[in-house]
Design a protein around this nucleic acid. Structure first.
Lengths: 237, 237
DNA sequence: TATCATTGTCTCACGGTGAGACAATGACCG
DNA sequence: CGGTCATTGTCTCACCGTGAGACAATGATA
């Protein structure tokens, strides 16, 4: 919850993370709000001088969500000059109660490495960092205006996620351990942003071999009781 | 052809490029050899303090190949600690006739952004840079041992290329303006590393709409004369 | 007990694919 | 000069995955 002085981090280098969760039939991401600015941005951070890049990102995720062993993928590195906005950064630092004299290095140009993560919505305990008032979930299609080039980052992350959609990921990372076929299909549809044919979806999922059917049936609700499924096999890292 | 002093470049940040060409039925990449070391590595470089990342890579490609408007894609950023090898770097600097006192910043840890490029083999005029004796083409499956994590970079670049193979790219960037269907198929096979069914390949290519058939027929060789084709539509950047 | 939405499964038509066949072509050889 | 033979463009056919729809089974509700 502190900002280490410049020597601790690689200068000019940052990461930003697009953290996906699923709840209430919607695909959502984590967005943070800077202190007293009404400005929103993706959760990001810096890389320690002797810290592997991947570990830096996992550290940031852990500090904000309390989760370890998260599914995490790099999707793009952003290095244009347009993303540099020292004026905005100055305000963020000052309104958080810090001095630009101490944190002037944050006004520099940064090259940022974009990661996306998939996490189980329910198992998260959110904690804001030193610069942010709050961190919260936003529907993927109802995001507030984001600072810098973060809107483009989200777009890219979502495109990459859609392209790499595999049975392993979704159920293993976004859903609780047991779920119905219907629930699984709804997650897919939320990610892809379009409806899927029911019979084909079920056929493909069953044929994939990743699913295990639990003979238990759900009960209590309405109509015919669906099977519960869980995912088999390895996944994250 | 000079090494600018530290202030000109972003510290701890580099790029490396996997430059693909096609010749003699083989997929090849450019590999450079450092002065008097017998050590091989991918051509790479540094990013100017006020230079967009993409432009830095294009600049490096231009300096080495004389080509502009190259098809270029980022594929992965490498940030582990294992890739740091100051001892090797010290030798490279010294054997090139430079002093570590002046270029000590090159011994630091670097995070490197990997790009791959597709270029027309015949239109290249190779030029080594300040640190390298030579730069030349190597068969993708007969590479010399590469320094640092560059072998992994090549592997990743090739995997990404195979995954993103589209009709647009190959013919537009790896082949000369006019080519036969057979030649096109051979390029695909060289990239994918496996034979493709002839009739399906032809059918799909013709149906893609990217090809234009030129009524001229090749002549002089053997047997039945094939049509010549060229690609239509936009491509690179 | 009748109603009705949901679920698991099946069938069918459609489109793309790989394998193979076929004629056309044009250089080479006897 | 005619036969041989490899290459090329195209066609046919069997096969597989897909989307659409049908159907019975189910289980809560009226």
């Amino acid at each position: 919850m502190r900002l280490d002085p410049p020597p601790a981090f690689l200068p000019h280098l940052a990461y930003d993370s697009v953290i996906f969760g699923y709840s209430d039939l919607k695909l959502k991401i984590l967005v943070m709000e800077y202190h007293r600015t009404n400005w929103f941005a993706l959760p990001g951070g810096f890389v320690g001088v002797d810290e592997p890049l991947d570990r830096a990102v996992r550290r940031g995720l852990y500090e904000r969500t309390g989760l370890k062993d998260i599914f995490l993928r790099q999707f793009q590195t952003f290095g244009s000059l347009e993303r540099h906005d020292p004026a905005a950064m100055r305000q963020i630092i000052e309104r958080s109660g810090y001095s630009v004299d101490d944190y002037g290095w944050m006004l520099d140009r940064f090259v940022s490495i974009g990661y996306y993560a998939l996490i189980d919505f329910r198992s998260v305990h959110l904690r804001p960092d030193a610069l942010s008032d709050s961190i919260g979930w936003y529907d993927i299609d109802r995001l507030p205006p984001l600072l810098f080039d973060h809107a483009k980052m989200v777009e890219q992350a979502l495109a990459t996620l859609r392209q790499n959609l595999e049975a392993n990921l979704v159920g293993k990372n976004l859903l609780p351990g047991r779920f119905t076929m219907k629930e699984l299909q709804l997650v897919y549809e939320a990610i892809l942003g379009e409806p899927l044919p029911r019979s084909s979806f079920q056929r493909k999922m069953l044929a994939s071999g990743h699913l295990r059917r639990h003979e238990k049936l759900q009960e209590g609700k309405a109509h015919k009781a669906p099977y519960l499924y869980s995912f088999t096999g390895e996944s994250d890292s």
